[in-house]
Amino acid sequence: MEDPRKMKSFLVSTKAVFLKDWRSELRTRYALSALVMFVLTTIAIIVFAFGGESPSQEVLAGVLWVIIFFSGMSGLARTFVAEEERGTSLTLQLLSTPTAVLFGKLAFNVVLIIIVNTLAVLLFLFFFSTFRVSSVGLFVTTLALGSIGLASASTIIAAIIARANTKGSLFPVLSLPLLLPLLMTVIHATSLSSEGAFFSEGLDDFRILVSYIGAVTGVSYILFDYVWKD
């Protein structure tokens, strides 16, 4: 990567992978519709389950991230699984370097999960009037870092399960242990934000999230070649 020309071609190639997936998604709406419907149905079920009760802020913070986690599980594997199911992985291998594929698909998943999470939060605020976001900056940063972290871990796991036989059911099983540290941290930071804590109080959590994202992306970058090529 030291060579600036290589760096440029890597960026162009990554962008091409991202645009390909994005345009394919706009034509088929496969992942997006699954994710949106998942968020809607889950929120409806939770509204009915709580009845008229108004649960505590901590419970609500947890519930919000449970929705986000499982909706991510229903859609984030799509980008790799679709290539494998349609038999286009070979084509993509012929066209691009593994690194460009990894980062292009990672970018796609980040965009996808940010869209879905924004929707989930808006619906959540709409249906649960007791859910307060007292420190907006803290909340938005948590949501953004949480989404990126979720996407970064799910992308490499999706690449792994795309090569296995039972793709769908395996995804949450493999992802949960890897996402637990992320989920624990974002739930903590989210309840801080609804208590109206200062931004600086979330810094410890943000540091954990940023290093989590760095570690996961780094290890994915090193290991992706083994996953991508048989």
Partner: peptide
């Protein structure tokens, strides 16, 4: 993960990759 992959080389590679990622996290 191991039980879901038939080809031995693929199973070995992917499970090794998974355990390394888990070890990093």
């Amino acid at each position: 993960l191991r039980s879901a992959i038939d080809v031995e080389e693929k199973r070995a590679t992917l499970s090794a990759v998974y355990s390394i990622i888990a070890g990093v996290i």
